[in-house]
Every structure is written in C-alpha cells, then in structure tokens.
Design a protein around this nucleic acid. Sequence first.
DNA 1: AATTCTATCAACCGCCTCGGT
DNA 2: TACCGAGGCGGTTGATAGAAT
Length: 219
Amino acid sequence: MEGSLGVRKGAWSKEEDDLLRACIQRYGEGSWNLIPQRAGLNRCRKSCRLRWLNYLKPAIRRGNFAEDEVDIIIRLHKLLGNRWTLIAGRIPGRTANDVKNFWNTYMRRKSEEKEKRKEAMIPHEVLKPQPRTLSKISLRLGGKQTGEYHNSAEQCSTEAYAAPPLQFPENWSDNWLESLLEELGSCTCEGNGSCCSCTQEETLRLDLWDEELINATGT
DNA sequence: AATTCTATCAACCGCCTCGGT
DNA sequence: TACCGAGGCGGTTGATAGAAT
C-alpha cells in the first residue's frame, strides 16, 4: 500500500497510531512536515495531520450524534453552508469530518424521504401567478417614495432599491449564537423570507464570519 | 450459508490562503 | 511582486461492517 513516492497510504495500523501519538505528545501539534520524520512514519504530512485531528486527538467524541447536536448542525448549516470546520468548532468533541459525514448521510436520507413524499403526492390544482400593482411605498424600501414601478435589473440596482440596513439586537456581538438559534428557532419560511430575515442571510453570514475572525485573531 | 445491498466513516486529493523570502 | 512551502479546508472515494435477500 505505497504511493508513487514510496509513501504509505490507506488505513493506519495500531503501531503507526502509537508512533504518531507519542511524537505529538513529545513535540506538540504543528510542524506537520517534520512529524513523519520525527515519528519514524512513512506517511505524508497531510495524512499525519488528518489522522491526528480526526481520530487520535484525545478530546474527540465518538458515537452517534445527540439530538441537540443534530439540531445545532442543521441550524448552523442553514446559516453557514458547508463550512464544516466552523460548524464543528461549535460542537465540542466533534470533528469537521464527522459533521460532514453526518450531514451527507442525513441529507441523503432527507432527499430520499422527499422523493417518496413526492411520489405519494396527489396531483393538485396549480395556482398561476397573477399580475399585480405594487404599492409605491414598500416596507422593503423603508417607506421611501420610489416613483414608478420598475422591473429591469438595471433599474432595480439603483440606490433607491437598496435594502435597508439590518437591525441587530444590542447584545448581538456578545452572544451571537444564542441570538441566532433564537431567530432560526422561530423560522418556518424555508428561506423565502416570509416569516423572518432569511433573505438577509448573506449579510448575516458575512457578519458571522467577521466575528469568527475577531475571535480567532483576538483583535 | 452465501451473496448482494446499503450505510458509515476513514482517508485521499486538489485547491486555496497565508506567511516568509 | 512573484514564488514557494506549509497549513487547512471541502469534496469525493473506497473499505468494511451489518442488514437484507
């Protein structure tokens, strides 16, 4: 089981695990390019790093995901998308790989259920969209007078059509996760914005990302 | 008991970012 | 500014255990 450069690939043996563990206990994490040499392993740096982070690290929790963990994953995925490391970072003892694997099987199960429901559905009357006149003062425009109704992309990109600034609670930056879960918990619109601020998700994402960076850099 | 199917998860691969030179 | 190497991430694959036939 060796690669083109004579580097071993595939499943790790217990001996290899022991060597890697001992090496990291002695030298610490990091300097992954030196780890194979120091540990006496015929593995590439990436393989060593992955094995440690996903399997050997003492804090790792194994076994099925608890109900509340699943709940957090679903909510955070709704907000962050496939940012597995960020999501895993909010669930103690779980790795990005675990979360990713869980999500893939979870999603497969969900889509299969959806397919089944679709097949079992009775055909029903389709409601066609009706032409309608929009009010000159819309909530989305913050009550600003906008003049005539426009429908071209060019016209819609003008300043008059910019969305109003997001209103965050005063304590937003202090406990963003609690605020987030609270908001997501009351959401029933599946992202169409009919009941909440799902349509503001992109801006929300950027703010959350900033928060992560601030936490990471300590600035 | 043998074979096939399915779900799970460890591991690999390619790409991106960042810091050093 | 360009290049290079290390670290890190997400997507995908492959091995394998367990269930179903």
